[in-house]
Design a protein around this nucleic acid. Sequence first.
DNA 1: CCATGTCAAGGTCAC
DNA 2: GTGACCTTGACATGG
Length: 294
Amino acid sequence: MKIGYPCINRSLACTAGSTFRMASYSEERLLETVRENLNCLEKMLAFNVNHNLLFLRLGSGIVPFASHSICKTDWAFRFRRELRSLGSFIKRYELRISMHPDQFVVLNSPDDGVVERSIAELDYHCRLLDTMGLDSTAKIQIHAGGVYSDRYSAVQRFVDRYQLLDSNLKKRLVIENDERLYSVKDCIEISRKIRIPVIADSLHHECLNNGESWKEALEAAGKTWKKKDGIPMVDYSSQEKNRKKGNHATSLNSRHFRKFLRETKDLDFDLMLEIKDKEKSALKALRILNTIKY
DNA sequence: CCATGTCAAGGTCAC
DNA sequence: GTGACCTTGACATGG
């Protein structure tokens, strides 16, 4: 099991997702920002290797406005050497990589404009990973989308749109259960139609499920991953107390995490810790993992 | 210099 | 139909 944290490392003085307002867009500003972001990413990768955190989610903000029409720069070409070099580092140390474009990516929207922008955003994510030279085990995770008061049609739209995507993108795309609309079971049903791997998210499963246990859900999701996809990925979090359902914990709850490990000890997966204090909790999780007695 | 309003992008729910 | 919420950081402006 590789353990990781998403996008931001609070122990470092830099961020790999610094951006700027669209009103102040210029090519110079873009190039300067991307250069800084990639420098920071290099530091994050080194930190991770040094601390044995071998799973990392890359933030979507590495190339600001990459999928927007305002961006006319061929960023992948301009930064091909830097990206290739980061990719080599990732492969040398066998780091696992994921990305998670945010809520604006909705493949099954009834609005064609939304779909078009979503695909452009996915293409950006895919191109970043491609340019790094990473194989199909580096994944891009999205949610199934909206329901629009007609679930059957909404799922059908997802399936139809998926099949039209570029094969390069399809080999990286995976779907994750969300906390309100599409459960693990719903995602697996979609997966049956189009063979897309399913990422199980523990907190979302607590919020929305079909009566199956977490282990059952995890096992079923794991079976949707083929050899070319790599070891299944799993998102873990726990509920922050006194906050609305689905709110991510501020820091790792040791007891909850030990229980999670006990319940899933027979399964192999890479674990993304969606905890607000990021690498701090990831390190804590690693210590627990290394000392646990079943 | 600091406080705070605002930022590319969507969907759902309550009212 | 409109606004709050989701969730979050940090840019950027105005005082």
